[in-house]
Simulated scan of single mutants.
Amino acid sequence: MMEVVKDILQAYRIFPTEIEKVTDRLYHIKDSRRDYALKKSTLKQEDIAAWEHVYYVANEKNLSEIVPVYLTKDGKLYEDVDGFVYYLSPWLLFAPRSSSETSIERTMGLLAHIHDRTQQSQRISKSSLNKNFHTYQTFCEQLPNELYSYVLRFEQQAYMSPFELQVCTHYRDIETALNRINGEVSEFLDQSEEEITWNLSLCHGNLALDHVLNNHIINWEQARYDHVAVDLTNYFHQLTGEYDQPNELIMEGFKVYKRKYDLEMFDMKLLSIYLLNPADYMTIIRDYVKSTKEKPLTYQVSALQKQYRKLIFALKWTDFIKEEYETINFDDLSN
């Protein structure tokens, strides 16, 4: 494999003095002048155009948050070897680990700047919006009864398994989340305007915690233009799936985001709907009930608990939005 790496580097006119395999897909390259990161990407041929567009936009909009990639001697952004796409970027040195508060606020600030600078707006009709959300609304409305049927089924067991006990323990909170999302979807669709502004921005599409290095965001392989709720949901889910949820830090980080990129209530409602999405939680229960035996019980219990934590955060999030941004100022109404 090292010979393949050396051949790829020749396409960049780089003669390495040291090659370190960091992971199966990442190499740390050194020559006499610089350090580089060589990535064996997951890009398919049909994804390349969208990925390349990220760097054209970053150059045009002067988005320093997006780590650049080097051009080959043929002027390409990547090198194709045996059907795999490789690209080369600067090797970023890790700064000393910052506090969670600083890290979350910094990431939210980076996202806000990218989303703001790349925003594109389009007008869509209210009828089109309702049509697109109708199937999802119907799906959500059926879930409370489905969840209740599982609880009744499990409670009839003489001895519940740890997974079944977990579902029953979660029930009240998940029932609240299901009722909440049905209310949020109804409010979201209850728009008085016949036409609505739908904003799209450059979204990372797969924002994991290790994709944020200092003041930069790496790995734009799944990037696309979408509503910013996509990036924010991915990031919040990364932060809230584990035991220690930094709820207050996320709320404070969002205030930083909103000061830099001022979302409308319509956009915040959509974000709430994304966060409250119960599909993954319900899918885990359905798979258990089907008794497919594909995954061990310990995995199912752990996976369900992660989805539960995300939904608990979503409930706290919607409370935060209501208190922070939906509170009616009666003095304003009287003027």
Score class of each variant (00 low, 15 high):
S149Q: 08
Q156V: 15
D173V: 04
E146N: 01
Q137Y: 02
I114V: 09
L88Q: 11
E101A: 07
Y171M: 08
T176I: 10
H115I: 01
Q166P: 12
L165G: 06
Y148L: 07
I181R: 08
Y136I: 10
N182C: 07
A177M: 07
F163R: 15
A95R: 06
Y171C: 14
H115D: 01
F94W: 13
E141L: 02
I124S: 01
D173S: 14
Q157Y: 14
R123H: 03
E164G: 12
L152G: 08
F188E: 00
A112W: 02
K126A: 12
I174M: 09
S100L: 15
N145M: 02
L189W: 10
D173N: 07
R172D: 13
I181G: 00
K126R: 09
E105Q: 05
D173K: 06
L165W: 15
S100Y: 09
L110M: 11
P144K: 06
T102E: 09
I124R: 04
Q166H: 08
H170T: 02
H170G: 03
C168K: 10
E101I: 13
E175K: 05
I181E: 06
Q137T: 14
M160S: 12
A95D: 12
S161E: 11
R97Y: 01
C168W: 14
S89C: 13
E164T: 07
F163L: 05
E187R: 08
A177V: 06
S186H: 15
V151W: 05
I114C: 00
F139K: 12
E184P: 00
S127Y: 05
E105K: 05
Y150Q: 05
L165P: 06
W91Y: 12
A95P: 11
W91H: 12
E141T: 04
S99G: 10
L92I: 02
S161D: 11
L88G: 07
T102M: 04
A177W: 07
D173G: 13
H113P: 05
Q166K: 12
F163W: 05
L93C: 11
Q157R: 12
S186T: 06
V167P: 08
Q137I: 14
L178F: 00
I114K: 00
D173E: 12
T102S: 03
T169Q: 14
R123M: 03
V167T: 10
A177N: 15
K131L: 03
S127D: 12
P162E: 08
Q119R: 08
R180T: 09
L111H: 00
E101H: 12
F133Y: 01
S127G: 13
W91P: 13
S161W: 15
L147D: 02
Q137L: 11
E175F: 15
E187V: 03
G109V: 09
Y148T: 04
A95V: 13
Q119S: 04
N145L: 04
Y171K: 13
T135I: 09
L178N: 04
F94Q: 07
L143K: 06
E164Q: 11
R123E: 13
S103I: 03
I174E: 08
T176M: 06
K131S: 11
N182I: 10
S161F: 04
R106D: 02
T102H: 01
C168A: 14
E101V: 12
S99F: 02
Q119V: 15
N179P: 00
P96F: 03
L165S: 04
L92V: 10
S125R: 11
A177K: 00
M108D: 10
C168E: 15
L143G: 05
C140R: 00
S127W: 04
L110N: 09
P162K: 10
V185N: 06
E146Q: 09
F133N: 10
E155W: 01
K131Q: 11
